[in-house]
Design a protein around this nucleic acid. Structure first.
Lengths: 147, 147
DNA sequence: CTTGATGCAAATGGTTTGCATGTTT
DNA sequence: AAACATGCAAACCATTTGCATCAAG
């Protein structure tokens, strides 16, 4: 039920299974995404981290790699407000609640949205994708702070 | 409770009430947003329509006007996937369900999300903003079409 | 008349692309 | 060897900004 965290080799195997090649750049991107855990990273952040080990890997390659990984279903893309796109492994499926006051992102368990999904399907025939649901609002801390 | 559709003059009065000036450009933008009804328009689409009557109004002015209107709370901004920002009058509060297959946007009544909002508030202390909720997924038509 | 809004052109910044070269299969 | 991935530089496109001018209060 809950997806276990895959190893780097498993991810690369999945990539190959979809006809994609396992290159140094892709290994590096996946390794950083694994290391990031639940955190969402931008292409630029990924490139910066990768450069510690592989200074030659170009930002545009990171973008192309991320596109390939997303097409293969290994990662999920999320956009928060006007910030750059962020990426995380698809295993970590969750919803996003972004606080417009402090900018923090809260990962909500899929469960929370399950009733809504059922309702949308029943009443509107709309099959909501649980990977791309972002809610903006005010988090508990900021609500308290502002009275 | 349900917001009635305001007139152009009412909107301009609201603008003035917030210390903003009522200029030709702002009148033109608001007029087009009123004419658009539930439809979401991009800055570029607005500029194009406005140019029919006022060819001199520059796209950058449309952007600045939209910023001012949003700051004054008269309009709401929504971003769908990677497309340009879209704008609509704040009176039309609704949620957005975007079909990733056909690209269509369905406006959902606020009611639909009310239980979720209550739950987020109760369980996570998160006060969701009903104006900025976008759900992606597959609409009824596309689900049928693809079996 | 004073402040804020506009037109224009130029900058910005994230992301994409063309092409020649390098790497994986 | 063939197909695909990469580095680099340049393009792209939505949006923003500096500045001189204009219009609303």
């Amino acid at each position: 039920m809950a997806s276990h965290r895959p190893t780097l080799d498993e991810l690369l195997a999945q990539l190959r299974a979809r006809g994609q090649r396992a290159t140094t750049a892709r290994r590096a991107v996946l390794a950083e995404l694994l290391a990031a855990g639940d955190t969402h990273l931008t292409a630029d952040e990924l490139a910066r981290r990768i450069h510690a080990e592989h200074p030659a890997i170009h930002l545009s390659t990171v973008y192309r790699t991320l596109d390939a990984l997303a097409a293969a279903g290994l990662i999920v893309v999320a956009r928060f407000a006007d910030q750059p796109l962020t990426y995380h492994l698809a295993g970590d499926v969750h919803h996003h609640a972004v606080c417009t006051t402090c900018g923090d992102t809260i990962n909500l368990p899929v469960r929370v949205l399950a009733p809504l999904r059922r309702r949308l399907l029943r009443d509107h025939g709309f099959d909501a994708d649980p990977r791309h649901l972002t809610i903006t609002g005010t988090c508990a801390g900021c609500r308290a702070g502002q009275g």
